[in-house]
Design a protein around this nucleic acid. Structure first.
Lengths: 199, 199
DNA sequence: CCACAGATTGCGGATTTCCACAATATGCAA
DNA sequence: TTGCATATTGTGGAAATCCGCAATCTGTGG
């Protein structure tokens, strides 16, 4: 799924002009005429950002935003509105919207915001995939290796680990070496940093 | 320094009525007639939250906000404004303002926001106090010790660190031992975990 | 029953770390 | 100038880690 700006607006003219603007700047776009249409098409794997109109027939932009948040959407959302409304802007941003811009707006500015949003999404995805790959590595450890790893992360020396697990130092060394290999690290410090934030 | 709501507004009537409102709900207040006055009184140890008027003679609310951010202010900031301006609200919130409310507003709502802000500040301070103690430890390291620590955290062995810093292994060992002592850790792993999340 | 994976252990040598003792050089403040 | 903190280096030995080679024991699944 290639990164993409998803436009949701019930005004076809606006969709088309936004799409043209973004495409001309190299940003892939997909348009939806209603919040419901986008909601139906949404899936967790979508990558990119959203441009939501505030006022639409049926479900509004903020309502769609809330619904997507419920579903676990992580794409940055930029709201577009013709009628400035401070409380609405405040509410949207406090709920985590990426931006809130009033139409008409400077084309350049808007495109820049979209590009920033796409960049943010790409970064978030990169970070998330990192966490996933770490978990994958973690899962291929055997029980013993995990136990040893815990104790290593507790800052204990092999000798103490051996005592605690009632096994020989040599065995600890073997597990240690194997888990380092599996986790793709060369030192205990690297391991600690790889798992920083976890457990 | 007891938690407190700092009011900055050039309209004395508003300051007084806000102060009365907040005091009546048990929130300690301090009022300032201008951004400059507050800026002069500000210090890092202040705890609580800020209520800033947008338009004031001299330095504006947003300008004060920026200035305080530069100085490292961490108190939540609530903007108050009579003239709704979406771009300004968006800008303030994207810079980290806690809230942006239009006057006139529901008294109850405003007090609730202030209380939320005070709560947030208290939580942040609680979380930061842990980090602060670590930073204190960090600050009593000498330059060399810090350099060595960086390389240790990069997972490098003493030999490599010695090469990189163009000093002997022995010296690295000395710095290493000293910084471990100062940081109160016994192994590199403990050090990495102590600093997990930083740098 | 056999193959295979995981857990276990020992040996021995290379490498590294840990530390006490000792010493030199520099820069800054009293 | 003296004293103190910092940075630097060396020697040498004890302790720990790292690692290849070899081997045993125990389940699980074919």
């Amino acid at each position: 799924m290639t990164p993409c700006a998803y436009l949701v607006d019930d005004d076809e003219a606006i969709r088309d002009s936004l799409a043209w603007l973004l495409e001309s700047r190299g940003v892939c776009c997909r348009s939806f005429p209603s919040a419901e249409d986008f909601l139906a098409a949404w899936e967790p794997a979508l990558a990119g950002c959203l441009l939501l109109d505030i006022r639409m027939d049926g479900m509004s932009g903020p309502e769609l935003f809330d619904a997507l948040n419920e579903l676990g959407n992580r794409m940055p959302v930029i709201f577009l509105t013709g009628h400035g409304d401070v409380p609405m802007a405040v509410s949207a941003l406090k709920k985590g919207a990426f931006d809130f811009v009033e139409k008409p707006c400077n084309d350049n500015e808007l495109v820049n915001r979209v590009i920033e949003a796409l960049q943010l999404d790409a970064n978030q995805r990169a970070a998330a995939s990192g966490a996933d790959s770490v978990n994958e590595l973690l899962n291929q450890l055997t029980t013993r290796e995990r136990q040893v790893m815990e104790l290593i992360l507790a800052g204990k020396l092999n000798k103490l680990i051996a005592d605690e697990l009632q096994i020989s130092m040599r065995t600890v060394e073997v597990h240690r070496a194997k888990l380092f290999d599996k986790m793709g690290v060369r030192t205990a410090v690297e391991l600690a940093q790889l798992l920083a934030g976890k457990r």
